[in-house]
Nucleic acid binder design. Sequence first.
RNA 1: GCCGGGGUGGCUGAGCGGUUUAGGCGGUCGGCUGCAAACCGACUAUAUACCGGUUCAAAUCCGGUCCCCGGCUCCA
Length: 471
Amino acid sequence: MTLKICNTMSGEVELFKPRVKNKVTIYVCGPTVYDYSHIGHGKTYMSFDLITRYLEYKGYDVKYVVNITDIDDKIIKRANESGMDPLELAKKFEKTFHADMHALGIKDADVYPTVSGHIPEIIEIIQTLIKKGFAYVVDGDVYFTVSKVEDYGKLTNQTLDAIKSGARVGVDERKQNPADFALWKNSKVGEPRWSSPWGEGRPGWHIECSAMSTKYLGQQIDIHGGGRDLIFPHHENELAQSEAYSGKKPFTSYWLHTGFLTINGEKMSKSLGNFITIIDLLDKWDAEVFRLFILSTHYRKPVNFTQKTLKHQKQSLQRIYNTVDNLRLQIQNAQELETPDKMEEELQKQISRVKETLINAMDDDFNTPKALSEFYNLIKIGNKAIAAKMSKSTLTKVLNTIMEIAHVFGLLEKKREIKALPEEIQILIKERDMARNRKDWKKADEIRLKLKSMSIILEDKPEGTQWRYQE
RNA sequence: GCCGGGGUGGCUGAGCGGUUUAGGCGGUCGGCUGCAAACCGACUAUAUACCGGUUCAAAUCCGGUCCCCGGCUCCA
């Protein structure tokens, strides 16, 4: 089966065909860096992390760009409140954004371009748009002429009239059409500024993405992604100006939008006081727990963040790790089989089947919940193979398949510290062994309880007592 | 008002015309175990927001209704 992707433009799941064979260009709208990143950002970039990982797994040569908006009204406002330089403030939060992404185990994009680093490119595009008659200058501001684009509104399936009547903002009289948007803004006192043919100013919001995607990925790209909230006006405007600039359609072959994250059913916002930063999140939960949480819902659907759900994911993650640990242990002890056993043959076939189903699920618009359910089937097969004391080759096959898929999911990447246990604990375990040998269950249980209070879980297995840290 | 996304068992969450209503969590029982833990097996859950229609057959398609969430202003 081949990859299919749901395209916001058509609202349908379409066959994925990159512009250049085996290559994928993907641009995702990054954060406006005016504050610490929150778990909503985490959700979005985690989703695209999964998508790019899978594209790479499929053998595509992926070029992935995520922009950093470091010039923006909100940044300026924050900076003025705190007496900081806007670009300095942006730099600070750009750094924390990257740190947060790394902490979440999200792979770096190939490029993280900033707006402030691309002013000449932006000016060039605006000049071309003016030359082509798609933009006009008013008092040092430059606006995009929406009415010049006959198919404006195609992404959101809205007509210009509908947009006009729905506008909730006070109309700027200087605009030819209320839906016209700023490409360049005349800077006010205390705002960052760059010189331009229209005077000192700064770029508008949408133009940066056109400039940077063009620069790094070309005038036409395969996938453009972002949070659902960006569809309008941002992506609609970006689309209009990019196509106007290049004269080529489509600007983007596939538009992908991720569902929103809510907290206890409500939108996350400062005013509701339910704002959770990535730092807060990781203070309480492991990054892979969050990843499993994201994996368990389809990227396009909304997700609701609750402590209870995270707790479930934590348990599930523990289960996965247990199985992998047990498989490794069993492989050490298992024998190679002389003659192939029917049961083993059947199980091996089952592994291949499950993997195939899993890949099909991922091919179907990155259906991670379905894929995850197949992954759990793989885990179950692993446990079964252990319980049935199967051969080394069968056990190895399950383990390898699990690890292969886990890597696509970005799971099981934790460096498991195989620290030697402190001596006093080793002694306790030995003491317990001796107690068990003389059937002194009371003493044995006491030691087990004591170790539990030290976050060490003991498991008595046929091969002897195993220990693990309580997560 | 306009444009989207949703409403599936106790919770979570797939399925998008018909094989068992996936998988996970939870619950019950059994196995393993000295007891646990982990794991295996069996079972459980009277589920598809509502009302019509199409069809031999609908959670799945069509029409209508209700409810929730988001966008239309900065927002992942």
